[in-house]
Write a protein that binds this DNA or RNA. Structure first.
Lengths: 241, 241
DNA sequence: CGTATTATTGATTTGTCTCAAAAAGTGTGG
DNA sequence: CCACACTTTTTGAGACAAATCAATAATACG
């Protein structure tokens, strides 16, 4: 059973009624999964809300020509909320861990019940939903105004937020959360394009690489190149995706 | 003052409490605007929720190099909901009619008050918000898998839904809702690309044109070309944008 | 160590953007 | 109704970014 603190510290479940809290804590399932494990199948994904506490996972659909990536989630992201209220033509997806992950799930029917009876819970979800909308809108903007190098750079800059502490103010070391083909797909480009664009970005903006470990030696240089046309200004408070 | 029927027939305001209904009807402002009129300025847009009953309007920001189009709305679309709940870094936009429009606005502070006290209203907005999210996700998919011709074709097919009745089952006549440069921008391409892609689409899929009036002579042909890679199947129940 | 997976590099093609100019359409006042 | 200016749309030629197809290199793994 989940600790009530975990729930209450979470913006989605903050300040909800004691009754909701009790009910949700009873039905929520905490889980710890190893890299590559399948967490939810198609049917399960549409019957459960999932909140990811730490790690990385991917949502995808199996199709004729390989996997169709639906989304990639990380710390404090969630999925499945679209199944809370009735809507047609919604399909589930496979949820798989791409690193070790810590998460909890809540059966949709319970969440639906609580949301319909707890105004605070409903408002919390509404606020989170507006924020997600903002983020999707930003992604659309990025797809049309940023080139491949800039999209990768933007991703790296947002990845930065996952480092607890940076030794030097202008140098940052970080590691890519998953294989490059998956990242490429997430950023709307081919793996070959990703490879070429990343190496060009590294040459151009003073980033040194050792496998999937990157060291951004000069934040100013990369932000100057990446954020030049974006409507948000660095450091933008967006999460990683 | 607005007729309560208009409110109650509207999914966003269906089944809300009498109290909410009374309050919202008292503060809502009904409006009828001619083409090209500015409806809301930057500040006003972030202080008001807007529901568009009929017509077309655009949201945009004035910037150094011309207008930056934020969105284009039509029948039963709404905007301003992101200002209901506190969030940082949200900017307003100019709202302008691009056809004659019929709409109503509600001061954000009243809507916020009602949403916080009426669970049904909150749930209605939550549901609408999930739907908008779905739509944004589809747009992202389209931007990466559809070429210019397909994006235009997809727009035309969805424009079809605005026709009350079609004389022939396989032939449809429709007129573009606004100038082509604006449509191009909405579809994420240059006006020149739009012009070339539209004429190629017309040649390829048996569409005849007279100015901004288009006649799709063979629905099958265009859907076959446009929808081939989309995850939704025609006729997809998406609204025009 | 060999096999499979993942990543990079190379050569070519495709689609879209860019800049420039011409054409078509719209509106105004004489 | 025409002449004029102005806007919108189309067309053309060239540049460029990314996709594609193919081959090689690096890495992981039993």
């Amino acid at each position: 059973m989940l600790n009530s603190i975990i729930f209450q510290q979470n913006k989605l479940f903050a300040k909800i009624s004691d009754r909701s809290l009790q009910q949700l804590m009873q039905v929520a399932k905490y889980g710890n999964y190893q890299k590559n494990n399948v967490i939810l199948t198609y049917q399960e994904s549409s019957d459960n809300f999932l909140y990811l506490m730490t790690g990385w996972l991917k949502l995808f659909k199996q199709s004729g020509n390989g996997e169709e990536i639906v989304d990639i989630l990380t710390n404090h992201h969630y999925c499945g909320e679209q199944f809370i209220l009735p809507a047609d033509a919604l399909e589930g997806y496979i949820v798989q861990a791409i690193s070790n992950v810590e998460l909890f799930t809540i059966p949709i029917r319970w969440l639906r019940y609580c949301i319909k009876h707890d105004i605070q819970l409903s408002a919390n979800f509404l606020q989170a939903s507006f924020k997600k909308q903002q983020h999707l809108t930003m992604e659309i903007e990025h797809l049309s105004i940023q080139n491949a190098m800039q999209r990768i750079g933007c991703f790296l800059l947002r990845l930065r937020r996952f480092k607890r502490q940076d030794s030097l103010p202008h140098a940052i070391t970080l590691s890519l959360p998953c294989d490059k083909a998956l990242l490429a797909s997430r950023l709307g480009m081919r793996a070959e394009t990703f490879s070429r664009a990343l190496s060009k970005l590294c040459r151009q903006c003073d980033i040194t690489t050792h496998g999937d470990i990157l060291c951004i030696n000069d934040i100013t240089s990369i932000t100057h190149y990446v954020c030049q046309h974006c409507s948000k200004k660095f450091p933008c408070n967006e999460t990683i995706d």
